[in-house]
């Protein structure tokens, strides 16, 4: 039983990160029906920029670990949001009117480009976050040793998701994003500036991905230029699992995928962990073809 609860917290922490990244995929997909494969590299870039800012500006020394990290998070979000918007401008916007899969290939190209940019700028070696910003001890909760950082990661990702949920559900811009996701044409007729919505999506989605990268850097301490692929694939899986285009779906899908992985590793086999996760995904899709929370779309006639 102890094993079960420990693995559950493992899964929740990883799942929280998957969910944050998955939100970026799902938001872009919702509005543009584009799988933004370069999103995973924006996540990597977030981790690297976070490291640069952290070491060059000594924020945590000046402001203390808490406010320093919060400010750092906002700076990373801002920078990655700008990169995200630029990416859209350069690689996707020229392809708005062309076949959908052309933009996918452009996204793949952008992913290769960004990954290698990071490699050339920062070098191919692992980069290491400074130690001791987040506490490295474990606390005992009901007889379980749970690392503090894991709780911090869990809280942060939950907080970010709540903020996004509020933004999407309660604000005017959020409503516009939802409207554009349902029907772009109708949204435009209703006086919604769809281009602004797209820009918004390419600011918010990458910002979340970037902050997830920072979180990964702070949590695990080690980052490398290829780490985006693995996380990206998992997060994309999570987005699909929850029903792509659906924001609560991405959150549920991410958390669920993290837990499935941890449980698969614990009770079946570690080496087959990813295969187990994909098997579960395929099974779910066979029975619910549009994901867990995805809406049933009637075939157009």
């Amino acid at each position: 039983m102890e094993q079960f609860f420990l693995q559950l917290t493992n899964g929740l922490a990883v799942g929280g990160i998957y969910a944050l990244i998955a939100l970026g995929y799902t938001m872009v997909y919702g509005v543009l029906k584009l799988i933004n494969f370069a999103h995973s590299d924006l996540f990597t870039l977030g981790a690297y920029l976070g490291l640069t800012l952290l070491t060059s500006m000594a924020l945590t020394d000046r402001l203390g670990p808490f406010w320093g990290t919060v400010l750092l998070a906002f700076m990373v979000m801002l920078l990655i949001a700008i990169v995200g918007a630029l990416l859209d401008r350069v690689a996707y916007r020229p392809l708005r009117q062309s076949p959908r899969l052309s933009a996918v290939v452009s996204a793949l190209g952008a992913s290769i480009f960004l990954q290698n940019t990071v490699m050339l700028v920062y070098g191919a070696r692992f980069q290491v976050y400074p130690q001791g910003i987040l506490p490295s001890t474990a606390i005992r909760v009901m007889g379980l040793d749970i690392p503090m950082v894991r709780l911090i990661v869990l809280c942060t990702s939950t907080l970010m998701m709540l903020a996004l949920f509020f933004f999407i559900q309660k604000t005017k811009t959020g409503t516009a994003i939802r409207a554009a996701a349902i029907d772009q044409g109708a949204a435009r007729l209703m006086g919604i500036d769809v281009n602004r919505v797209i820009l918004m999506v390419f600011l918010v989605g990458p910002a979340l991905g970037g902050v997830a990268g920072l979180l990964v850097g702070l949590y695990y301490g080690q980052i490398n230029f290829t780490m985006g692929w693995g996380y990206g694939l998992k997060a994309f899986t999570a987005a699909i699992l929850g029903g792509i285009g659906n924001i609560p779906g991405a959150m549920v899908g991410g958390i669920l995928l993290g837990v499935i992985e941890a449980m698969g590793a614990a009770y079946l086999s570690i080496a087959w962990k990813d295969a187990i996760a994909f098997c579960v995904l395929i099974l779910i899709l066979i029975f619910r073809p549009t994901g867990l929370l995805g809406e049933r779309v009637a075939e157009k006639v």
């Binding site: 350069v90 690689a91 020229p94 392809l95 009117q97 062309s98 076949p99 052309s102 933009a103 290939v105 452009s106 793949l108 190209g109 952008a110 992913s111 290769i112 480009f113 960004l114 990954q115 290698n116 940019t117 490699m119 050339l120």
Partner: peptide
Amino acid sequence: ANARMLVFGAAMIAMMIFRTQG
């Protein structure tokens, strides 16, 4: 040399933008 995949990624985007249908 080390930048070859970077150039390749950029080329992929460029080709797609200029020939959107392939």
